[in-house]
Design a protein around this nucleic acid. Structure first.
Lengths: 213, 213
DNA sequence: ACCTGAACACCGTTCAAGT
DNA sequence: ACCTGAACACCGTTCAAGT
């Protein structure tokens, strides 16, 4: 019978509990009623702290990217760009089951510091503010697309390679061995290097004069 | 009282109806009961043709990319790569409200022809089969990431720019005018050019000898 | 101010029964 | 073989009532 036999409910407690439930059982298993039960309360009490279920889902998405551990800048913008992309990826992979929420919804205001860091890196690479916005969007689109593939891909599946060969499509059959598997880390790194190379080229062009083309 | 007063139910009719409902009212509004009503049948009848609701959602995702209008090859692989990316984007944008289904789930077997076309383009660019797989995954990740941003972004919002300035973050404030808006078509093209440039560079390297680096 | 009981209008899915 | 009625075990959310 301590004075705080039960923590008072709060928006933060509701959201934290919801994130935990999603991480444990997946988004589709989250219900307002189970969330309330988890918090030792009736479902209707939640509505004093969140607007509705969608509000809860938005809040979960925001928490994920509020967690991005921004790397300290170095002298090499390429190193910094890579570190920032890695940090973003790490934050998403820390909560894989929230991916469909955090990646599909528009990145909210808690993600603004990530944008600041990206624009800073790209400014140091030589982009003017407008080009830096475009470049950062390209980089982020690549990273998010890669994460979506990684998080959505199931466990290894031995039937994939023979199925690909059986399509009879020549290029697919020829590459079936490589298409059947996906080493996510290496795949991410391959494309990231590629995008960074391209950004480096544009940055040099931009430094040579405004609106190079 | 014509003999076919009512078309017989079939998996294809169920899926087509589901796609139409999603396109009209969104994924969250799709229920087995409403789907059945749309088909003039009781909800339980659907289970003679589909395994469950998830099966329906998977089937919708497959239909979207079965529709990709593969462009005929030309003499210029760069033109072809762009045309293929454009065709993929067009297919996704033709059913924007299914995006969370079609882009987040693993691309199914109906999308294999797209992979064949991509690998063919990249082979003609000079990539060996393994490198072509990596390159195609990079390209697709970029396109999908861009689509997710495009489809997830709401209508223009006048409050965004002042909110960005108000963060006090210097790069964000400086670029607020450009961050506040997003011309999706132009943004997509910017990054696509960038990725294609980078692929062109790798292709040359690969043509110079196996495993350049 | 915050919590709750009861209720409303829904869900997906199973199963035994119909034709 | 295909369709259905009734039922089960759930949903999100509202509202008036409690403390």
């Amino acid at each position: 019978m301590t004075p705080r036999r039960r923590e008072p409910l709060s928006r933060d407690r509701v959201v934290a509990s919801a994130l935990a439930l999603v991480e444990l059982h997946g988004v589709e298993a989250l219900s307002m009623r189970k969330l309330a039960a988890e918090l030792g309360v009736e479902a209707m009490s939640l509505y004093n702290h969140v607007a509705n279920k969608d509000d809860v889902l938005d809040a979960i998405a925001e928490v994920v990217f509020a967690d991005v551990a921004l790397p300290p800048p170095t002298a090499d913008w390429r190193v910094d760009a890579r570190a920032l992309a890695d940090a973003f990826r790490a934050a998403a992979l820390a909560h894989p089951r929230t991916a469909s929420l955090s990646l599909a919804r528009q990145l909210g205001y808690p993600a603004v510091p990530v944008t600041e860091a990206a624009l800073d890196v790209l400014a140091r690479a030589g982009f003017d503010p407008e080009q830096a916005v475009h470049a950062s969007r390209t980089l982020l689109a690549y990273v998010i697309g890669t994460l979506l593939r990684e998080i959505g891909s199931g466990p290894p599946d031995e039937t994939r390679e023979p199925a690909l060969v059986a399509t009879g499509l020549p290029r697919v059959a020829e590459a079936a061995r490589h298409l059947a598997v996906c080493h996510h880390e290496a795949e991410y790194r391959f494309g990231l290097d590629l995008v960074l190379d391209a950004l480096a080229l544009r940055a040099v062009g931009a430094a040579g004069g405004p609106s190079a083309r």
